[in-house]
Design a protein around this nucleic acid. Sequence first.
DNA 1: ACCCAGGTGGCCC
DNA 2: GGGCCACATGGG
Length: 208
Amino acid sequence: MNKFEKLYKELKRKYGKPKEQWDLWCKRSKSEKEREEVIIGAILTQRTTWKNVELSLNNLKDRKLISFKKILKLRLNDLANLIKSSGFYRMKAEYLYSLIKFIDKNYGNLKKMKKQKKDKLREELLRLKGIGEETADSILLYALDKSVFVIDEYTKRLAKKKKLSKNFSYNYLQKLFEENLKKDFRLYQDFHALIVIDGKNRVSYRVS
DNA sequence: ACCCAGGTGGCCC
DNA sequence: GGGCCACATGGG
């Protein structure tokens, strides 16, 4: 067992099954609607706490708006106001809208989108405004079941702390994790979730 | 009254 | 390729 596999086991032992948001994000078999919710959350959570994202998601849920088709019918300004609590709400409304529009226009639905090759999808997502590497990979991994390892601040911090690498650029770290783990989107989903849970745990420990 | 959070794009060098 | 700023709300 290598360092990466050991780290996964260690985190799993420490935290068990990922909870809260991760109940849905790591769910083994998702409905179309659940996949849409993951994608909406992936945009909203950029540089924002999950609590604030939840307020927005609940806002949308109360109005039965966790639905790409329905969001496409909203005015950009109304969408922005509904997701206000996630911060950067004007930008995120624009990002979310253009992403949903792209999916609707090019694939029709997520079931069809899922059939596309992951490299092609990644390229397409990265061309959209507001979708960088982390968001693109989160969508690929958690909404489309593609085996790409998501790198975020917590992953970089943990990689430094555990001395897993000397290079902490996104692409290098991603490749490193993928090369040292079995190519399995379920493993990647759980592992990344545990890294975030662990990261938040450390932060709150330090603060309080 | 600060300081921070799963990021991204634009502009500069 | 890296440094710096804008984008904004809610909670410690």
